[in-house]
C-alpha cells in the first residue's frame, strides 16, 4: 500500500482532514458536526498517514502518546463537568461566557470544553488502536 503517490499525498491529505475535523468539531453546536464526528475524522487522518508512511512518523507528528491525548480529553470533559460545581449548580450544567473579541463576541462555554474533550478522547483512543494494529507488520 505504500505506493509513491499515496505516500506523497498522504501527509497533505491527513493535515487537511485534521483541519476539517477541527472545523467540524467547532461548528458542531449549530450545524452537523461535533466531537464524535470530528474525532473520527482526525483518527482516520492519522490512520491513513500511518498506513502510508509507517507508524513512527505518525508518532513523531503526534508528539504525545495517543492514549495520553485520550486521557487529556477525558480530563477536560470531567473538568468541564466539575466546573459547574464551583457555581453551585449540578454536575454538567453548561456555563456560558461571552468574550468580546475583535468587536464581536465569541461564546465560550464549558459545553465547548466538554465537546473538545470528547474529540480528544475519540482521536486518542482510535488512533492508538489503529496505530497499534498497523505497527506490527512494519516493525
Amino acid at each position: 500500500m505504500r505506493t509513491l503517490i499515496f505516500r506523497t499525498v498522504a501527509p497533505y491529505l491527513a493535515s487537511l482532514m485534521i483541519l476539517f475535523s477541527i472545523f467540524v468539531l467547532l461548528r458542531g453546536h449549530n450545524e452537523p458536526g461535533g466531537g464524535f464526528i470530528g474525532g473520527l475524522i482526525a483518527a482516520s487522518a492519522f490512520a491513513i498517514y500511518g498506513i502510508a508512511c509507517g507508524v513512527s512518523p505518525v508518532r513523531r507528528a503526534l508528539h504525545f502518546h495517543p492514549m495520553a491525548i485520550s486521557g487529556t480529553g477525558l480530563l477536560a470533559s470531567t473538568a468541564a463537568g466539575m466546573l459547574s460545581i464551583f457555581f453551585k449548580v449540578p454536575f454538567m450544567t453548561g456555563l456560558w461566557l461571552d468574550i468580546p473579541l475583535f468587536g464581536d463576541s465569541i461564546a465560550v462555554s464549558t459545553v465547548m470544553l466538554f465537546d473538545i474533550g470528547v474529540y480528544l478522547v475519540v482521536v486518542g483512543s482510535i488512533t492508538s488502536i489503529a496505530l497499534a494494529l498497523e505497527e506490527r507488520p512494519n516493525s
Binding site: 464524535f36 473520527l40 475519540v122 483512543s125 488502536i129
Partner: peptide, 10 residues
C-alpha cells in the same frame, strides 16, 4: 445512535 456507533466501533 451517535454514541452507540462510536461505542460499538470501540
Amino acid at each position: 445512535i451517535l454514541t452507540a456507533i462510536v461505542i460499538s466501533f470501540s
